Amino acid sequence: MTDETGGLSRRKLLYGLAAAGAAAGSGSGVAAVLTDTETTKAQFTTGSFDLDVDVLSPTSWQNGSYTASLGLYQPETASFELAVDDNPAYVWLVAPCPTCAPIEEKIDVTVELTNHAGSSTALFEGSLREFRTAYDSGGALSTEALPDGGETWTVSFTWELTEVVDGDVGVEFGFEFRAVQGRYLDDPQAYDLGLPECDGCDDGTDGGNGDGDGDVACGKGISFAAFCSEKSVTQSDVEFTRTTCGDTDRAATLEVATIPSHVDHVLLKYGTKLDVFAYDGESTPFSINSGGENSDLTLVATYEQDGSEFPESGDPPRATNNPCPGTYWVKYNFEDAEWATGTDEPTGGGE
């Protein structure tokens, strides 16, 4: 078994943040940076409309520029408090255009809004590229205006590196808050911030228009592959390679050259998901992709990880250290370049 994508570095991605305490209706309120350098710069403008933006957490970010390391599967969260002094205001979140760099697909982003009444809403979940595509023209945080007179909203950003970074890379993770007095608008969703249109990304996954509908669908990079069987199976019984998918640099395809006929399921772990494919003796070679698109085997289930387990996958559930409970299995972890084998007597179960 070989990995044809080259040696993958386990170095951590460095990130930094810079923030401004106040922002104009046409200016920037806060910017965060994920970068490979230890110094970051951000530029801010101010104006007559007073939108206050304060960093709530982490507290080490309150004094300006900050850098630290972002480890694989180690999410980081930053929270910001928004307030207006004079009049109720509608507030937008604005992201820069996608750079189309591969690293944008290796960072997951979650954005959550908590209003002045304490009610929380998930605004966004997806990759950094999808975040930029969703907010590059601006997106209203709420159809309601942010009240004045001491009421506040909290916006929380969480980002997580979900694939190993190969070599030295960097990406800017910037965003802005923009506000307009509520008296001037009836429908903030229809308001045009007048931002320039962004170009799409032509990377083999979306046909160049950023809509994800291209000819090649690629998931995230595969972190481990496992083979389940009612009979004993060892690493010498299987031969496979992990390759890049389409024109991307994501090692999201498993090319299988040799596999025993008694194997019944092939598993791919990527990010926080586990794909389970049924193997019914299909001829080799065959290929499967994380996410299941354009795969030669049938994808029967995808499970979400919680801790080390995939709770919805059965009783007992599948787990990272036991992907095929009750059967024999062999697993290869690409991140550690290590094999593992399960030799428990079969007890039935499966998909």
Rank of each mutant, 00 (worst) to 15 (best):
F277K: 03
T241P: 00
E176H: 10
E81V: 08
T2R: 14
R242W: 03
N115E: 14
D36S: 15
E112R: 14
G138T: 08
T243A: 13
G246C: 05
D148N: 14
A252C: 06
P316Y: 12
V165M: 10
F240M: 10
L161Q: 13
Y15T: 05
E239K: 09
T253A: 09
A23R: 03
E255P: 00
N321E: 11
S232K: 15
E351G: 07
P88N: 08
S9H: 05
S236D: 15
T162P: 01
I107E: 05
L123M: 13
D199Q: 12
G182D: 11
L72N: 08
Y184K: 01
G200H: 01
W339Q: 14
V263Y: 00
T35S: 13
C201G: 07
L82V: 08
V30N: 12
F49D: 10
S229D: 03
F286Y: 13
A18G: 07
T110D: 15
L268M: 11
W329V: 11
G71I: 04
T158Y: 01
A22R: 10
L72A: 00
V111Q: 08
T143E: 14
N289Q: 14
H116A: 13
L72S: 05
F157A: 00
D215N: 12
G27N: 04
S127I: 08
F224I: 03
T205R: 15
T110K: 06
K41N: 03
Q189M: 07
D187E: 09
L82P: 00
G291V: 06
A179G: 06
E4M: 01
E197P: 02
G16M: 05
G27D: 06
E144N: 12
L56D: 15
G71N: 11
G281S: 10
Q181E: 14
E176S: 13
D344T: 15
D203W: 08
T77E: 06
E176I: 05
R129P: 01
V109F: 01
L113E: 07
E255A: 11
T39K: 08
D54H: 06
H116V: 03
C201Y: 03
R10C: 02
V216P: 00
D52T: 07
F131S: 09
P323V: 10
Q43H: 05
W339F: 12
G212H: 12
V33I: 11
L123K: 10
V266M: 09
K273A: 11
T272Y: 15
A68I: 07
K220W: 13
D203V: 08
L297P: 09
S261G: 04
A251L: 09
D249K: 11
G170H: 05
F124T: 10
A78R: 05
S120Q: 14
L128I: 01
A190E: 11
L34T: 14
K12F: 06
D187H: 02
H262E: 08
T143C: 03
P316K: 01
L185E: 00
P147C: 04
S261L: 04
D36Q: 12
T302N: 07
D249W: 02
A19Q: 07
K220V: 02
R318P: 01
H265Q: 14
L72D: 09
D203M: 04
G7T: 13
L123T: 10
E105Y: 09
